[in-house]
Design a protein around this nucleic acid. Sequence first.
DNA 1: CGCTTAAGTGAGTGATCAATTACTCTCTTT
DNA 2: AAAGAGAGTAATTGATCACTCACTTAAGCG
Lengths: 202, 202
Amino acid sequence: MPSRARNLPADERRAVTVATVVELAGEQNPSEITTAAIASRMNLTQGALFRHFPSKDAIWQAVIAWVAEHLLARVDRAIEAAGSPLAALEAVFLTHVAFAATYPGVPRMIFGELQRAEDTTCKRMVRALLGQYRERLVRLIEAGKTAGEIAVEIDTAAATTLFIGTVQGLLMQAMLAGDVGRMRVQGPALFALYRRAIRSMS
Amino acid sequence: MPSRARNLPADERRAVTVATVVELAGEQNPSEITTAAIASRMNLTQGALFRHFPSKDAIWQAVIAWVAEHLLARVDRAIEAAGSPLAALEAVFLTHVAFAATYPGVPRMIFGELQRAEDTTCKRMVRALLGQYRERLVRLIEAGKTAGEIAVEIDTAAATTLFIGTVQGLLMQAMLAGDVGRMRVQGPALFALYRRAIRSMS
DNA sequence: CGCTTAAGTGAGTGATCAATTACTCTCTTT
DNA sequence: AAAGAGAGTAATTGATCACTCACTTAAGCG
């Protein structure tokens, strides 16, 4: 969202920068996004960015913080609105898929950070985000077991890994086809399979 | 595998180069591997690489061709040795996981290529590889349906996506923990969940 | 209005990287 | 043993990138 307004206050400029990076990451390989490209999209000179961020890495940290905040907020809202643990899992799944379809750059960034070998601040932030996400899944799966919706003999850790992998598979399919919109269409069929994997045999 | 021999014949040098890139990709972000780093690992000067490859991109193409050849060969061997479609699916799964654990750089490369937005030769090769892989999965799942091992009401396309996603989830878990070895341990539990998702209810 | 402060400009700088090139070394073949 | 071909060296080139800085412009406030 390139604003026409000039001389934005610092916090707004930072927010616009984050939004711009998310937008650019949806169009190209995140690791190839240059500060010049970010600035150009914002109708700004490249040097101006460094008035608001001490380094390019700081920009990435701000972006990841934005993602963590918004994704987890949406997930929590989906969980609250659901009537049962299994319904909540489905709502989280569809929320996650919708988020990825809305901001296709986000999964690309997450992938990119994870495949980095060194333990950077960004990678640690991504790891923390996934940890919190996984925490919520564990809680739902355990609740589903006591509610009788999910088979008690299921390995909870494996079930969370499969949940994330299910989203992942959908994402990879979409990246292959270059069509993020199809994710929303294929999502329900994939979750149906996931439900078969974990449901109790009543 | 840096060879001590100097002045290798061209085809051997190309093979060593591919092996070196696969090795390096297991240690660092593939997109950050420089021609200087490859050469240095081979005890060679950077310029020498360009005697054998016209460009850096050509090196990547050779690496992806190597991956496609070896991964598919292992998968096909696993399928042939299995006694039933469902057993073959499990064998493919474990083979894939073992391959990723042996060459941790390979999934990193695949991810990296897929998240590239432009339609490069490398990305097309990765897409072709995944297409052939998916073809084999479709064949096994259809065979499993007629054999009564897999529920006929399953969406075959979704089942292949889930299969790949299952491996994917395992990989992401491993990349997060920085421990590729644990993949082999957690593999069976994950495939058990996948089996629950697709098996027939006899 | 005038002054202060924050935001933005635009031309750098040094580092890094893929690719090139002129030259040297090392095999193989006869 | 001589010679030619192929493999490797080492220095270089041009492009790109993150980051800097002296200067200019705009916004807000008494």
